[in-house]
């Protein structure tokens, strides 16, 4: 899975570091470090951290369908190729 934290939004509440310590850590008192591509076994913990973030600064691709599922009308996609 792939993760990105908007560190301009992050306020260092560190809920993620409690819930998924293998994927999120504090460097000092409020600087967040994280695993952008955590291994699959961390997925559940990371999703809990996403849900618990008080400022909703963590985004993942966990809920985004793979490219094959994307709804691209065939006629339109074939245009102008």
């Amino acid at each position: 899975m792939r993760v990105v934290v908007d560190l301009a939004v992050c306020q260092g509440y560190a809920q993620c570091a409690f819930l998924a310590p293998d994927a999120f850590r504090l460097n000092g008192t409020e600087g967040l470090m994280y695993q952008p591509n955590p291994s699959d076994d961390l997925c559940r913990a990371v999703l809990r951290a996403v849900a618990a973030c008080p400022v909703q600064a963590i985004a993942t691709d966990a809920a985004v369908p793979a490219p094959a599922d994307a709804a691209v009308p065939a006629a339109r996609a074939g245009d102008a190729r």
Binding site: M1, R2, V3, V4, Q35, P36, N37, A59, T60, D61, V64, P65, A66, P67, D69, A70, A71, V72, A77
Partner: peptide
């Protein structure tokens, strides 16, 4: 291991 997530399906790109 810093690949960015696709936050929207990019469809046929």
């Amino acid at each position: 291991h810093t690949v960015l997530p696709h936050l929207e399906p990019l469809g046929d790109t």
